[in-house]
Computed example of a mutant assay.
Amino acid sequence: MNEKKVLLSMFLTVVLLYSCNKKESKSKPNSDPVIDLFKKNLIETKIGGSNLYISLPTNYKIEENLGPDFKVYHFKHIDTNSVQNLSGGFYLGYHPSEFAPDNDDCKTEFSESEVFNKQRKWRIYDCNGEFSMQSIIINESNEIWNEKIHAFGNATTKNDLDKLMKIYSTLNKK
């Protein structure tokens, strides 16, 4: 009888350990090696005259547009004749506003990713397989002129959308 209790106890322990490990693996976000490699190959780039930096693919550039009390930066592929799988930008200023979807058929979803070492909520529009994303972030840098950041981007596939999230996760202050 004691032998049965020991075996039952061992069996239950193994089942319990297996179920705990299974729960842990479910709670961890899946890592995509292609996206991780993409992030490792990004190059840190200073954003205009600000104290902000973002890491971009080697064949991308940032263009600056100045307004009376704001700045807008766009990043895109250097070769404008090439296929633009992803592009993005951000507004730095006082009064950001979100973009509306391209049409009424677009589906809206939400996702989270890290920006400035905090989880941020992104609004994502899926317009028949063309994706756009955006988030308005309070800039905690104590620079009055860029109090808010409206980050936005466009992608042609879900994979490119994931790459945009990785690019924005590199946004930092120095």
Results as ranks from 00 to 15, higher is better:
N85G: 14
N117I: 08
E24F: 07
T45P: 00
G153N: 02
E130K: 11
S19G: 15
C106W: 05
S113F: 07
S27T: 11
L52Y: 00
N65H: 08
N81D: 15
S113I: 03
S25L: 15
G89Q: 04
E3R: 14
E3L: 12
C127F: 03
N85D: 06
I167V: 12
S19Q: 11
S111A: 11
S169Y: 06
Y73Q: 03
N30S: 13
F152M: 08
I124K: 02
S25C: 07
R120M: 08
I78N: 02
E112K: 06
C106K: 06
S55K: 06
C106E: 08
L8M: 14
G93Q: 02
S27P: 05
L12N: 11
D104Y: 15
S31G: 08
E140K: 06
Y60L: 02
Y91I: 07
G129A: 13
Y18N: 14
N30I: 13
I62V: 13
D162K: 11
M133K: 02
F38A: 04
A155Y: 01
M1E: 10
A155W: 00
E3F: 10
K76A: 06
S141I: 03
I47W: 03
K46G: 00
G48K: 13
K23G: 14
I136Q: 03
I124E: 03
I136N: 01
D32E: 04
S87Q: 14
S113A: 14
I167W: 02
G88A: 12
V15K: 07
D36Q: 12
S82W: 07
D69G: 10
Y73M: 03
S27R: 09
K158M: 10
F152L: 08
N154Q: 14
D79L: 10
L56S: 01
F90R: 00
E64T: 14
N154W: 01
K107G: 10
K107P: 06
G67Y: 03
E143I: 14
G48Q: 11
S55F: 05
P101I: 01
F70E: 00
F131V: 09
A151I: 04
R120L: 09
S50P: 00
E147C: 11
C106V: 05
N117V: 12
N41R: 12
R120A: 08
I144E: 04
K107F: 05
N30F: 08
C127D: 08
L164A: 10
P101C: 04
Q119C: 05
K23I: 15
G129P: 02
E98A: 15
D104C: 07
K40M: 10
L42I: 12
K4I: 12
I43M: 13
V115G: 00
F152Y: 05
D32T: 09
Y168M: 05
F70K: 13
C106Y: 07
L52D: 00
E98K: 15
D36S: 10
N51P: 02
I144T: 04
A100D: 12
F110E: 07
K76W: 04
A151H: 01
I167E: 00
F152W: 02
F110Y: 08
V15R: 06
E147M: 14
I137F: 01
K23Q: 11
N128H: 11
I138K: 03
P101R: 01
N159F: 06
T45Y: 04
N59P: 09
C106Q: 05
D79R: 08
Y53H: 13
M1K: 12
I54K: 00
P33E: 07
